[in-house]
Design a protein around this nucleic acid. Structure first.
Length: 505
RNA sequence: GCUCCGUUGGUCAAAUGGUUAAGACGCCUGACUUUCUAUCAGUAAUUAAGAGUUCGAUUCUCUUACGGAGUACCA
């Protein structure tokens, strides 16, 4: 137990990092930091056909934006490097050979077409084709278990393409352990003899991840549930090499908000929320939106990601990264897949916005809103302070606050109908008088004067406040009417009320 | 088809072999003698179904149903 905790996040660079991948990275990070361990990034690019330019940079930038940088990885603290499997290519062959000489693996010469034919044939008979002892020694398949040594050698030397397959055992029951799921038992008779080494000279994921995890001294493998069915093979491989097996934890999937299946890129487009941390432009020019560009704060993203499948067991829902590190526990990760809830992510963002300083928000607001170029940021901050509780994103501010920066140019029709009555003009004229005679133009004084008058004259709040709001805002919207009057000032207030009175006549 | 994993209100979820099964988001309703996308308050689950173990099960076991994943010379 004195061993230093080392975990790895091992994405393949086939495109932008999906939000589920970010969650996996986050859980790895939290677990590592909780135990004072290391978080390693390893690029699993053994499939050269699926390599996408720029994907690796995207992964690194995403982790960095989330505030969960790796301790070791490509170009960083390379104690166990290289960290790209393509650059470790030379390492894997010897391990495949080792398994062959110990009789745990064998050469296979079957072509993809032949295998397809076998699968189809079995399917037609209602049977399942499994490439293992059920079939491998019956002469239908071409491999070094049915061929003589000389025949095998001849094929290899003759340049025939071959793969290396793992020889899975017969009639054994495997007992597997998973931190989240507990004990799992598997009958080895249903296991395929998986390909370990491909004919293009690259290992498959299965071989590479075991070899690398061992060489990199990984102690805990935390990955998505889609790997659970491969766990038996992986355990068998550790055993075959005689290596100590790391502990495993398979995270529940993130499901679509509606319908069936796991969350996919398309769901974001369809339902209007990002599925990627950062905006991504594919090689073909297609742009996918990102949380960052959509106006989400990275703390909020990290917080809601942490709650996808995990919870602290208390009522606390707002967690900083430091708090997450402190409270995170793999044992409290759920087994069942979690449906992604875009509304909840918005709620988190709203919450994190409330905690930010008005001045900081004002500065961000100013940079995205051209109309604000010449406005004092301190004034903007006062406005932001009044409207931010109704906003989820910075971009919401303008709709909520434009009337603090410009007079209404029109009056909302429905609002007018509701607010304007026959005596409205008279009432507003009286309000103008009250505003003008308010000496010290402050919220409390305005409130006292106007509310006092309403109460004394027995007019009713609605008849005064609604048209007043309409005059100031142009609609029945916005924060407290007195706050608005105060911020825009006495002159502007009077001007706007006069404008409405004029438009009534 | 086969293998594995799962199943508590619309969603995320807490909890315990034994009181009225937390909380959050969302929804709807009400309140706020002034709007609301704000605020406050309130409504909603016979814990998938059936059986078994037990004095007692949502919590343990089995069956069924449903959902998910895997089943590639992808990761």
């Amino acid at each position: 137990m004195s061993k230093n905790v080392r975990v790895r996040f091992a994405p393949s660079p086939t495109g932008p990092l999906h939000i589920g991948g970010v969650r996996t990275a986050l859980f790895n990070y939290l677990f590592a930091k909780k135990h004072g361990g290391d978080f390693v990034l390893r690029i699993e690019d053994t499939d050269q056909n699926r390599y996408v330019e720029g994907a690796e940079d995207y992964i690194v930038e995403s982790l960095s934006w989330c505030g969960i940088p790796f301790d070791e990885g490509p170009g960083k603290n390379e104690k166990f490097g290289p960290y790209r499997q393509s650059e470790r290519k030379h390492l894997y062959k010897q391990y495949a050979d080792q398994l062959i000489s110990s009789g745990k693996a064998y050469y296979a010469f079957d072509t993809s077409e032949q295998l397809d034919a076998h699968r189809k044939g079995h399917e037609a008979e209602g049977k399942t084709f499994i490439y293992n002892w059920h079939n491998r020694e019956k002469g239908r398949l071409v491999n070094s278990l049915v061929l003589t040594e000389a025949e095998t050698q001849a094929k290899i030397e003759g340049g025939e393409h071959y793969v290396v397959r793992f020889k899975s055992p017969q009639d054994e029951t495997l007992l597997l352990k998973d931190i989240i799921r507990g004990d799992i038992s598997i009958d080895t008779n249903v296991l395929d003899d998986k390909i370990l080494f491909k004919s293009d000279g690259m290992p498959t994921y299965h071989l590479a991840n075991i070899v690398d995890d061992h060489l990199m001294e990984i102690t805990h493998v935390i990955r998505g549930e889609e790997w659970l069915p491969s766990l038996a093979l992986h355990q068998l491989l550790y055993d075959a090499f005689g290596w100590e097996t790391p502990e495993f934890a398979h995270l529940p999937l993130i499901l679509k908000p509606t319908g069936k299946g796991k969350l996919s890129k398309r769901d974001g487009d369809k339902l209007g929320f990002p599925v990627f941390p950062l905006e991504y432009t594919a090689p073909d020019g297609t742009v996918s939106r990102g949380y960052k560009e959509d106006g989400y704060f990275s703390d909020a993203v990290v917080n809601f990601l942490a709650f996808l499948g995990w919870n602290p067991g208390t009522e606390q829902e707002i967690f900083s990264l430091e708090e997450l590190v402190k409270d995170f526990d793999l044992k409290r990760v759920n087994k069942a897949g979690a449906r992604f809830d875009p509304d909840k992510t918005k709620w988190f963002n709203h919450h994190y916005m409330q905690q930010q300083l008005d001045l900081d928000l004002a500065e961000q607001f100013k940079t995205i809103q051209p109309e604000l170029a010449d406005i004092d940021v301190n004034y903007i901050a006062l406005v932001v302070g009044l409207v931010k509780e109704r906003a989820t994103f910075i971009v919401d501010f303008w709709n909520l606050s434009h009337f603090f920066f410009a007079s209404p140019t029109s009056y909302d029709e429905k609002a007018s109908k509701k607010a304007l009555k026959e005596d409205t003009a008279d009432i507003l004229n009286k309000v103008i008088e009250l505003v003008n005679t308010t000496e010290d133009f402050k919220v409390e004084n305005l409130q006292a004067n106007i509310k006092g008058w309403i109460t004394d004259s027995d007019i009713g709040f609605g008849k005064v406040m609604m048209p007043l709001r309409l005059a100031l805002v142009g609609a029945l919207q916005g924060p407290d009417v007195f706050d608005i009057m105060f911020l825009i000032g006495k002159e502007e207030t009077v001007k706007r009320i006069r404008a409405l009175v004029k438009s009534i006549n």
